[in-house]
Design a protein around this nucleic acid. Structure first.
Lengths: 166, 166
DNA sequence: GCGAAGTTTCAAAAAGTACTGAATCGACAA
DNA sequence: TTGTCGATTCAGTACTTTTTGAAACTTCGC
């Protein structure tokens, strides 16, 4: 396989993976492109490589910066902005966990709390409350597990899980 | 809050959560409805409750069964099929992990393997191969961690992670 | 203040995804 | 074999999300 083919294949696949990870195709492709680019790239270069419009490039670069997956890099003397990807996979996954937890798990916990206030005026209501209570228990556990995971560093992750596997 | 409001709120929120989990809104809503339903429900009843068409209900119920989140229940003497949700949250999450691993992580591992065969004929190609190698390492680790997680039972999960948190 | 180089915004268009409802299929009882 | 009840399929439609591209904005040097 040639370098060019390899790069293209990687960008395509990373894009596809991203779309099932709350990161849209283009966003993931930009991330992939930056991951395998030894140099920081400008918006122009990204547009060129991926054949996308200026607006699209801009929006998705901003989003990647928001998620903490890409950094802005200013070169002295240059007015243009350049971008580099976070290359440590553990950091990448960690940032995704942080964002998705905030966007998905935390709102769900709030809703579960609200729902718990249904008054148990009937058999059915009591059963409902019980189901919700169990879901809440599980979600809280997941929430704190993720917190711990995120606070820990890469080596810890490798170490603990390698032990688990054995 | 009344029981009715609580149920509606839960179905809505579970639906929203699902859509960012590779499970579409309706699929997740059906799952939510079944989760909080003390009795098995028929397709008709699901259509009625969620105001969706027969085709939509059918498709999404099949998908839920595929994912292992819902079971078919045949009542003796009844020709109709009834459905119940998997109510153990650990089983639910486990099944989602299994499915998504199969659909997302495993194809990515295959692509990474293919890509590794780029021939290192230049400085740039060597750097590319190195980046891919690191991603592969991380992905393999994630893959086996998930395998272990999935093989373990609920108590193990609770136990291990509770220890981690302290 | 003005123009050049670059960035951001956003309404409209395109692409992608999910839903409907009617036709079809299949199993069973009569 | 036929009629009935329910499950399944799928082409067309509706809805959602993403992308475009042009205009507006910002920053800076002159």
């Amino acid at each position: 396989m040639t370098l060019k083919e390899g790069k293209e294949k990687f960008i395509q696949s990373w894009g596809a993976l991203g779309s099932s990870w709350g990161i849209n195709r283009t966003m993931a492709q930009i991330h992939a492109l930056l991951l395998i680019s030894p140099e920081a790239l400008s918006a122009e270069e990204i547009m060129e490589e991926l054949q996308i419009s200026r607006g699209n490039a801009n929006m998705n670069i901003r989003a990647l910066i928001d998620w903490g997956l890409v950094y802005k890099e200013l070169k002295p003397g240059e007015r243009k902005e350049f971008f580099v990807a976070e290359k440590d996979m553990w950091e990448v996954v960690k940032n995704i966990i942080i964002q998705r937890k905030k966007r998905e798990l935390e709102p769900m916990l709030r809703v579960l709390d609200e729902i718990s206030s249904v008054n148990p005026e009937s058999e059915e209501a009591e059963e409902f409350i019980e189901v919700i209570r169990e879901i809440k228990l599980f979600s809280n556990k997941a929430d704190s597990t993720l917190d711990t995971l995120v606070k820990s560093d890469s080596n810890w992750f490798v170490g603990t899980f390698m032990k688990m596997i054995k």
